[in-house]
Computed example of a mutant assay.
Amino acid sequence: MTISNQVLLGDVVQNSALLPDNFFQAIITSPPYFGHRQYSTNSEQSAYEIGRETDVDEYVSNLVKAFESIKPKLKSDGLLWLNLGDTYRNKRLLGVPWRVALALQDNGWILRSDIIWHKPNAMPSSVTSRPTTDHEYVFMFSKSENYYYDADAIREEHVTFTSKSKMRGGRNHFGKPGGTPENGKNKGNRNLHDARWDQAFHPLGRNKRTVWTIPLSKFRGAHFAVFPEKLVETCLFASTKKGDFVLDPFTGSGTTGVVARKHGRNFVGIELVDEYQRMAQSRISEVDMQLPLFDVQ
């Protein structure tokens, strides 16, 4: 593929025609949020810029069209990871992420999970009439009921029997036969009731939960917070293998491409604004020159 590890300049719908069908194992992206920021000062580019619509329904419709155009490019067993933040208008929370998620579901995408991205270093707010927002959403979509997902690649450390456990009795249950006399869903589980909880837990850790605490990131070339590499890594490891192709149709500063290349995946991006297309391509090309320095997995 001649556009491997390249960032295409232009609109998503138009550029999607250049991409082969049934090719990408994962789409990992964070489109511009509704009404947050103007990225382009070029009038020709601005006509295609998502996020600057005056009406939230138009914004949702434009995103649905964009993802409809790239859906054929995703493999039948591939996954789409979509990060979106919300918007307030006239002191009303619009619920933009869920509007988009449900519209994509209506358009044929299968919504498999909603994830809360908790940002521990979220920007402080002077608001006093509601809680300060320190989260965004990540939605996991599939094209079909059968898709590639590597749960082992993103397992978390077990909490039960550690100092972080909130279970009544804590670690005192461990090693005590009859120490867990539940009558609920664990009733009859011999491992648990013989005090062998260790045998009921996966050796690589517990299954990934739906709240991910990941700090915001900064990149010196961008004057705003960027997609954190750790967030991209989690999506990447769960849905791809080394050598797979990853697509980001809203590339921005290029973090998805940087992470993909660092970990031995191939990448194609699409970016509307020429300034960010150059920035992203430069970052990705720099990683390619330094690949021997990375512990590719």
Rank of each mutant, 00 (worst) to 15 (best):
R168M: 15
P177S: 12
R52N: 15
E53M: 02
L8K: 05
T41D: 13
F267A: 07
I116N: 06
G257H: 07
P20A: 12
L93I: 12
Q38V: 12
L80I: 10
V232N: 02
L231C: 02
K91S: 15
V258C: 06
P215V: 03
R283Q: 06
G205D: 06
L247T: 01
K164P: 00
P292R: 06
V13F: 00
I3A: 09
N266E: 15
F294W: 14
E49K: 03
V64Q: 03
N83F: 01
K119Q: 13
E286K: 12
D57W: 05
C235P: 01
V127F: 08
A122V: 09
I214R: 06
G252C: 10
D86T: 08
R130D: 08
H263C: 10
Q281T: 05
D248R: 01
D244P: 03
T162D: 12
N189V: 12
F24M: 02
A200S: 14
I70T: 04
L19M: 08
S144R: 11
F139L: 12
K71L: 09
T162Y: 10
N172F: 13
P124A: 11
R99V: 04
F250W: 07
N83H: 14
D288V: 07
G205N: 08
F219M: 12
D106G: 12
R92F: 08
Y276P: 00
A260R: 05
V226I: 14
S285W: 02
Y148P: 01
Q45D: 13
K218Y: 11
P249D: 03
L93R: 15
Y148T: 02
W98H: 14
G95K: 13
E53C: 02
N186I: 09
G243H: 11
T251D: 00
A26W: 00
E68I: 02
R206T: 10
S129Y: 15
P215L: 10
M279I: 13
H223F: 14
V56A: 14
R92A: 14
W109E: 03
K208C: 14
P32V: 00
T162I: 11
A280G: 02
R155C: 04
A122Q: 08
L80E: 04
G51M: 10
F139E: 07
W117L: 01
D21P: 01
H135E: 05
T128Y: 14
R261Q: 15
W98S: 09
A280F: 00
A151M: 10
T132A: 14
K242S: 12
I115K: 03
L247W: 01
D244C: 04
T256S: 13
D86A: 10
Q38H: 11
